[in-house]
Amino acid sequence: MRGMTPIVKTVTRGMAGMIFLYGIYIVLHGHLTPGGGFAGGVMVAAAFVLVFLAKGSPEAVSEAKKERSSMAESLGILTFWVLAMIGLIGGTFFYNFLTKGKPFRLLSAGFIPLNNIAIGIEVAGALFAIFITLAVLKAGGKK
């Protein structure tokens, strides 16, 4: 992979972190404002993809990165599953077991923010894994 022009690289250096931060903001405020785990997760993945595309060096693409993002994805969705199962132990599947808190605060709505975070990790890992897979395929050549 050839990198992009210095313009793109420089802008990426400045912006990637902010996009990442914005993605996390969307994830964390999913229960207060529009957005949530799916949207925020995609943004987080986009931040990484941006860095990756701008850098574009062949050594950035590796099987290990693919495995790691796939593992992040598994961890995210496993967390979601565990949150659902805690409810099952206490009574019913997907029971909202945490206190509801005061509305409009960040820590409210029981396990909804936690679910959002789990989904955010899952989505980010998923999209980045797909991206890396395509990149590895191209870099390594299939058969």
Binding site: G30, H31, L32, T33, P34, G36, I77, F80, W81, A84, F93, F94, N96, K100, G101, P103, F104, S108, A109, G110, F111, I112, N115, N116, I119, E122, V123
Partner: peptide, 25 residues
Amino acid sequence: PTGAANLVAAVILDFRGYDTLGEAT
């Protein structure tokens, strides 16, 4: 009843959280 300010989040993650598990899957 979920205490979430965003109704959509309440529906997809609490009332129908099981669906969302399916979607994530």
